[in-house]
Design a protein around this nucleic acid. Structure first.
Lengths: 204, 204, 204, 204
DNA sequence: GGATAAGCGAGACGGTACGTCCTGTCTTCAC
DNA sequence: GTGAAGACAGGACGTACCGTCTCGCTTATCC
């Protein structure tokens, strides 16, 4: 099998890379993902198409990296340690606070458009989906898992509970409502989710 | 605004309609959604492209109807009352049984391929997403809501719990794991979900 | 071979026939021949497509009959004997008079559009071309041939001249200039043609 | 008005251009002009449709250039100076010789099919018609005009005759007979045309 | 005068081609 | 040897018509 010689990353134009990120994100927000094309990104970035195909394998791939970069930039600006679940000792309050912030973030179109696009692409394209989960989803979920483990140590969560499953009780419902638009989301809603998740549906 | 005169549905060819359904589903299963084209569906169904565009607005629209039709056919064969949540009096057991069956179903490629494709398309195309939810998701969720309400009447679920939210505690995690492949699914997993959802994470 | 039973002409709707003629001619004048479609003719005539296909084999066929009908109508109005070459005894004067009238007629768009369309179609479609020539061209040329024969009898044309060829010396140049737009046409031009044709190019 | 940026002709693929010419001419000869499609030309030439639409505006336009190129090639092979009217001093003989050669050429299907198609298209599409006349017809007619002017200098044609009109007396009849199939053509016919044209129809 | 069969308006159908858009590759030239 | 530029082969898009067909509805004999 004849393999293309890998391009020399050390000579890569950072100027072009950034321009492509910006163009990709802007187009997805302005035009929507399906109407965003590699050609359009190249034109807007003032870049040849080949420069995109040399470094990425598809427009989804470009968008994924662009979106990750956006997150890193935001993190850098916010003084690092951007997303984390606080630990005030009150588990319910901590979770509610973080989920409320998440709800607020989910409505920002600069965030929503690329996220939806990547999530959608990942549903159908398994390879991209795994990358999307590993790089974007998993890190977030880990923060909740860590907090739950701390709560277990403090006795606020039963010791036999699997934190990786436990967190899904409040995270997945929010994710589904938002992504699939099965119902509206709100602070009240996420508060309720936390309460149900911690204390269950059955009478005590 | 120039409006196309609506086609006369009474003169519609049922033969073609069925052939299109079958072709669309088969192609999505065999080739994958992105490689499925309107042209391909038309060719496989032995139909003119215009016949597709006359009755549907996009390949996603075709697939949605085809999939709904598939469900109806399956229901008819199964002697109606296809999907329902049983009520043996034991809420946990009933939910676990249904979710186990669901897990089994989710791996059938005849089901998985179109469902993923429609879900993905619905994430990005709001109009289609709402139709997808209303016609495919909501009816299923209703069954759980009904069962939870019955459980409330029987005292097995706290009366102040909102069933529409409560059901999400076990349904959404399964949905997310399967759709986004965040983690594997199994009978053990859904059993655990039901337990956590009913009795909470906090110690009793 | 299974042959379609010929339609019963006695039950044919004259109303539809006339409406189709009018629609065809109007569309060719207004939209041009290539943009005139069978569907468009049917719609404008308030007629089903099948009614056209029942009686004609192509849009060119429709247009040919429509144009012939137009000619007959014009003839009927003009009190029959519409086109003819007069015989005042002065051959040159007679030919010039008729050709001048022809030049005037050739600029009428109601005449020009269908004629050009039919001529063009006839160049490529031999069958239609022969019909076009037989029904539209030949009758006109015959009038000239007859006049030339009369002139031979009167001694104004050499007896050994073949009238069918002789007439082409002034008719064909006008036809070519007009059809192919090789040069402008005018009364002066046709007068000159007649002079050259009768007396030749070589010095006397 | 939004104008497409003109494509860069210096980077044009000559390989494709020639393949398109050949495919277009072959298809017109083999299938006939109406059954020749842009798609068919592209397929036969092993070329994308866009490559055709990038450089030409219609199939007629392609064919016109292809035919002109064919002429140039033939000229190049024949050692340049392909078509000309000889001047032996005997005007009648010279004209007869050229017209006889023309008659022979008109029956070659490699010539006839594209020529008819272009002529037909030119009758209806004025822009194409003017190009057809300017590039294909006019140069040929000029040769006759030149020969007639030489004959005037030699006293073989009356000095007051307009050569541009005079040549039509024998050229246009042949053109019309061939194009419109009003009557068969032959060497005898063109000989007669020359005689009539030079010496007129009226007795001397 | 009631049956029956044809022409008719309408338009859905299987197809073909259109002209456009975009993909991913390749080539050219500038830096 | 990367990058901007963009031509290229390919292929799907959604539209426009083709010529055939089927559907009810009129209409016009013919029994």
């Amino acid at each position: 099998m004849v393999k293309k010689p890998a391009p020399d990353a050390t000579r890569r134009s950072q100027r072009s890379r950034r321009a492509i990120y910006e163009a990709a994100l802007a187009l997805v927000v302005e035009e929507g993902y399906p109407r965003t094309t590699v050609e359009g990104i190249a034109a807007r970035a003032g870049v040849g198409k080949q420069t995109i195909y040399r470094w990425w394998s598809s427009k989804a791939d470009v968008l994924l990296e662009a979106f990750l970069d956006l997150g890193e930039q935001a993190a850098r600006q916010a003084g690092y340690e951007p997303y984390s679940v606080p630990d005030t000792g009150d588990l319910a309050a901590d979770l509610k606070a973080v989920l409320r912030a998440t709800v607020d973030e989910l409505v920002d179109p600069r965030f929503e458009a690329p996220w939806r696009a990547l999530a959608a692409e990942g549903l159908v394209d398994e390879q991209l989906g795994r990358e999307f989960v590993a790089k974007l989803l998993e890190p977030q979920l880990d923060l909740y898992a860590r907090r739950l483990r701390a709560a277990q140590a403090a006795g606020a969560v039963r010791p036999d509970v699997d934190p990786r499953i436990g967190l899904e009780l409040f995270v997945s419902p929010l994710a589904q409502r938002w992504l699939q638009r099965t119902a509206p989301i709100s602070h009240a809603y996420t508060d309720t989710l936390v309460d149900y998740a911690l204390y269950g549906l059955a009478p005590r």
